[in-house]
Design a protein around this nucleic acid. Structure first.
Length: 607
RNA sequence: GCCCUCGUAGUGAAAUGGAUAUCACACCAGUCUUCGGAACUGAUGUUGGGGGUUCGAAUCCCUCCGAGGGCACCA
């Protein structure tokens, strides 16, 4: 219906010399301003030498004539000029009601397209890389953000018609492994060597402790007055580089074996966490979990070097190979240079990322939209990477994106694995489940996960989050559990009504209360909200919508009696429209459940 | 030093350049003999400072202040 109004409005303003493409409808914030609003008069008045209100009045008059000849006849209650020159469109209650039912039908639609909310992404393929934890390092709240936000964006894009590939790009390579290898060799015996670590209760914890120990010991030695110790620190760091190089060469079976054990242990750990979070990378759906190590073979790296050389982009600088942006003269840099090959000839993350992206283009086709959901601290790096890939002609503008999120911080600073200053995700989940089960034991895990996810997704993701247990575990107000509860309650009310012989039906009387008008009109925004969230890659748009929706429903619910026994038998006077109320409650529950699903939040059967 | 991001009630957040800046928590005053009260109604209180662009600015531009992040072989 919105599209039809736009079409007629376009026809109305065309004779005035206003481009059809500039005509759009907004949702007014204030309900008194109707269902849709247009600012076309204000944006064009000056150019046409008219006052905005005059122009708007003329448009309204012409619009009325056209509407009466269209299929919209009788569905628009009023078209009015308001304020500085807005044109406000108000639908009739019948039109709103009809549209609400259509949303419900779409959500419960035919099996094949069930839950499909829009098809704006039809025919487009998008690969989204997110989560990407590092092997042998803790899965922390830091990775949590990428996992939650990335998963939600994937769900939203999928629901709006995109073909979506989820890619968990595991950090299973790099110099960090050299450090770990040295640490295992030097101090691993305390834990019974590699076998002992494998068999221990929490092997990852030990590996991380060893990694932290490496940094601690090196720092202590570097700070000491003893020259001998200082030299030893240097030697340890060098040794780590050497180990990492040997690993990359694949020539030492023992080192490669240790690496393999670490990868397996970590993958096992990650799988458990993803299961708890309700996040999945499913090969059957086309998802992948390919680690960086997959891209270090010459077979994958060489084509990248060739492509860079073909465009003459690869330059020597201080022993390493780099890409310059704009100029080699530091004063004229558009961006600082990007190191693509280290001076010892081994790969660096940029090399592996380039190889990965080339592989993706070759696998999924050149039209692929490629998104990395990664922390904002890597902004500069992604600018460099995307710029390089654009120069290579791999992507056009808007096809290669970095979606950045702010980081979790403590009140007194950044988290750091190296300094052992982290909060493990497992601990957070445990704490959340403990708190949730105090309120409701049956669905404690669902509720706990909802609290954690919603606390993240309700914000614009670029904002930093100061870690706070109470904030994170919030289960009242604008929280995940509150929305879960609202949905469960609405479902229960519908069930109860059914038991009393009232089923959802909008053909009968419609209660004439303002709270219902507001609720129905807000339900109509669902499709647009999801599309907008997808187009801007912002799950928080949906989170906010759901909070407002639940609030409107509660206001409505407080005003009516839906399934009171008296009302069924006719004893009560407030029974008119009971079937209609049930129908709206049902649509509310459907929309809420679908919306929560887009945020990766599951609604339990009972709460 | 250079570059990027963010500054909105006491707190945490929202707002496609649009109309009276929205929501939650907290605080205050109320409602209802609870169809699922994790409810509802009302009150108090907010765009860091200063310029500019615009019919219209929390939003865009400049500048100052504050916070965070990044800047060569970590990812």
């Amino acid at each position: 219906m919105k599209d039809e109004i736009i079409k007629i409005l376009q026809k109305t303003v065309e004779p005035l010399g206003i481009a059809a493409i500039s005509v759009a409808l907004d949702f007014p914030e204030n309900a008194e301003h109707g269902d849709y609003t247009s600012n076309v008069a204000m944006t064009n008045a000056k150019r046409l030498g008219l006052k905005p209100v005059e122009l708007a009045t003329k448009i309204v008059a012409d619009f009325d004539k056209l509407v009466n000849k269209s299929s919209l006849k009788g569905l628009i209650k009023s078209v009015a000029v308001a304020g500085p020159g807005f044109i406000n469109f108000t639908l009739t209650a019948e039109a709103v009601s009809k549209n609400v039912q259509e949303i419900s039908k779409e959500l419960n639609g035919s099996e094949g397209s069930k839950g499909q909310i829009s098809n704006i992404g039809a025919g487009k393929k998008v690969l989204i890389e997110y989560s990407s934890p590092n092997i042998a390092k803790p899965f922390t709240v830091g990775h949590l953000r990428s996992t939650i936000i990335g998963d939600s964006i994937a769900r939203i894009l999928s629901a709006t018609g995109y073909s979506v590939i989820r890619d968990n790009h595991l950090g299973d390579w790099g110099t960090q492994f050299g450090k770990l290898l040295v640490a295992i060799e030097k101090w691993g015996d305390e834990f019974g060597g590699l076998d002992g670590i494998k068999k221990s209760e929490n092997p990852i914890k030990i590996l991380v402790d060893l990694y932290v120990k490496f940094h601690d010991e090196v720092a202590i030695m570097e700070d000491s007055e003893d020259e001998k110790l200082k030299t030893e620190a240097e030697e340890l760091v060098t040794l780590a580089r050497v180990k990492s190089k040997i690993l990359e060469s694949g020539k030492d079976p023992i080192i490669s074996e240790i690496w393999k054990v670490c990868v397996d242990l970590s993958m096992h750990e990650f799988a458990l966490i993803y299961k708890r979070l309700g996040v999945s990378f499913d090969p059957k759906r086309g998802d992948t979990q390919i680690g960086e190590s997959f891209f270090v073979t010459p077979y994958k790296i060489n084509p990248v070097r060739d492509a860079l050389n073909a465009k003459n982009l690869l330059k020597d600088s201080e022993g390493a190979k780099v890409v310059f942006f704009g100029s080699e003269d530091p004063k004229l840099w558009k961006l600082p240079p990007l190191i693509v090959e280290k001076s010892d000839g081994t790969s660096i993350y940029a090399t592996r990322d380039l190889a990965a992206d080339l592989y993706r283009i070759n696998t999924y086709g050149k039209g692929l939209i490629l998104i990395n959901e990664v922390g904002a601290e890597q902004n500069l790096y992604f600018k460099q990477l995307i710029e390089t890939e654009t120069m290579l002609g791999w992507f056009t503008k808007g096809q290669r994106l970095h979606i950045a999120h702010g980081l979790y911080r403590f009140k007194d600073g950044k988290m750091s694995t190296r300094k052992g200053k982290v909060i493990w995700l497992g601990d957070i989940l445990d704490e959340a489940v403990t708190r949730a089960s105090k309120i409701n034991a049956d669905s404690a895990n669902d509720v706990a996960v909802a609290a954690i996810k919603f606390n993240d997704l309700k914000r614009d993701s670029i904002q930093d989050i100061v870690f706070d247990w109470d904030e994170m575990m919030n289960m009242t107000g604008d929280s995940g559990p509150y929305l879960q509860y609202s949905c469960v309650r609405a479902r229960a009310v519908v069930e109860k009504a059914k038991g009393l012989g009232i089923s959802a039906d909008t053909s009968g009387a419609r209660p004439n209360i303002p709270q219902l008008d507001l609720l129905e009109r807000y339900l109509l925004r669902f499709t647009h909200t999801v599309e907008f969230a997808g187009a801007s890659y912002k799950p928080n748009v949906i989170a906010n919508y759901l909070i407002n929706l639940a609030s409107l429903f509660n206001s409505f619910y407080a005003q009516v009696t839906i399934a009171d026994k008296d009302s069924v038998t006719g004893a009560g006077s407030q029974d008119s429209g009971a079937a209609y109320k049930v129908a709206v409650t049902q649509v509310f529950a459907d929309v809420l459940e679908r919306g929560l699903d887009l945020l990766g939040i599951k609604v339990p059967e009972k709460m």
